[in-house]
């Protein structure tokens, strides 16, 4: 009897263990399923919820963010730029902002990828017609202007971003971040306004250039002068005869002495242009997909 009771107790214990293990496994599977569903939802909604491990930004990310302690843009200027950006974003249905940090957040691969991820995250997704951010990391003095949510249809990586870069880089190099930020906002507004009016992205090449006109005028004047000089020269066929070629008896020519003596060799080395200066490196990406942009060092 005792032996039977002992066997029953062992069986019951094993059964309990199996039941417990089964329940634990079921709960775990359910949790995993929920997590998968959440991931899918996140992908569909373009990560509406900010990740908790990405510091310093979220639903309340300011339009002009300067990491505490950098003191690059005065509070008054930040307020002024924020007002301008709010008006700009409201007017064109976009979300344009400035984000200046000392270092990239932990886990970020590089500035370009982080800026592109950033511009399609959080409040930047509120821009129905697109989003754009000027992302600056001060530790390595690099910047990247990323466009997201199909902003690249309005501000293209090929023409629009280089224009903004040309506007802001000199100020960044001079450490005039107030001015650089303002120029960024102005350039963005100019390009967005252009798209609204013309229905096509802004291209600086289409703008009238005084410098090009001056060069063109010089070139055209040279053409006019050459044509004029040629026509004037046609008015006379009187010329000085400096040679007597027509009177040379070709058969009479005889070369009586010919000697070539090697003297020396000189070597000239002309370095090839590297094309891009390391200190002013820049990059741009294509406009395939929803993101685009370009950046460099300053």
């Amino acid at each position: 009897m005792m032996k039977m009771m002992k066997r029953f107790s062992v069986f019951f214990f094993v059964l309990m263990l199996l039941s417990a293990a089964g329940m634990f496994g079921a709960e775990r599977g359910e949790a995993a399923s929920t997590a998968d569903k959440l991931t899918q939802t996140k992908q569909v909604t373009q990560a509406k919820q900010p990740k908790q491990n990405q510091a310093s930004w979220g639903q309340d990310e300011p339009l002009v963010y300067v990491e505490h302690g950098l003191n690059l843009i005065s509070a008054e200027k930040q307020a002024e730029l924020t007002r301008k950006l709010e008006a700009l974003n409201a007017k064109y249905g976009v979300h344009v902002g400035i984000h200046i940090v000392k270092n990239l957040p932990a886990g970020a691969a590089n500035l370009e990828q982080e800026a592109k991820r950033f511009v399609e995250s959080g409040v930047y997704n509120e821009g129905t017609n697109g989003s754009m951010v000027l992302y600056i990391t001060m530790s390595n003095r690099k910047y990247y202007i990323a466009t997201g949510n199909y902003m690249n249809r309005r501000i293209t990586s090929a023409t629009g971003i280089p224009y903004i870069k040309d506007e802001i880089v000199p100020a960044l190099k001079d450490n005039e971040f107030d001015r650089a930020a303002e120029l960024f906002v102005d350039a963005a507004e100019k390009e967005l306004a252009y798209y609204e009016e013309e229905g096509e992205p802004y291209d600086p090449a289409n703008e009238f250039s005084i410098c090009a006109l001056l060069i063109g005028l010089i070139g055209a004047a040279c053409v006019g002068f050459c044509v004029c000089a040629y026509l004037v020269s046609c008015m006379s066929n009187v010329s000085f005869a400096g040679q007597a070629d027509e009177y040379l008896d070709r058969d009479s020519f005889e070369l009586t002495f010919s000697e070539d003596t090697y003297l020396y060799t000189t070597t000239t080395v002309t370095p090839k242009s590297k094309g891009k200066d390391d200190d002013d490196s820049s990059s741009s990406s294509s406009d395939r997909g929803s993101t685009g942009g370009g950046g460099g060092s300053f």
Partner: peptide
């Protein structure tokens, strides 16, 4: 770079013609 090696020669010529 582009390296240009220039060899310099002294060429003497004499000839007759009419």
């Amino acid at each position: 770079a582009i390296i240009t090696k220039t060899s310099v020669y002294d060429a003497d010529r004499e000839g007759t013609m009419a």
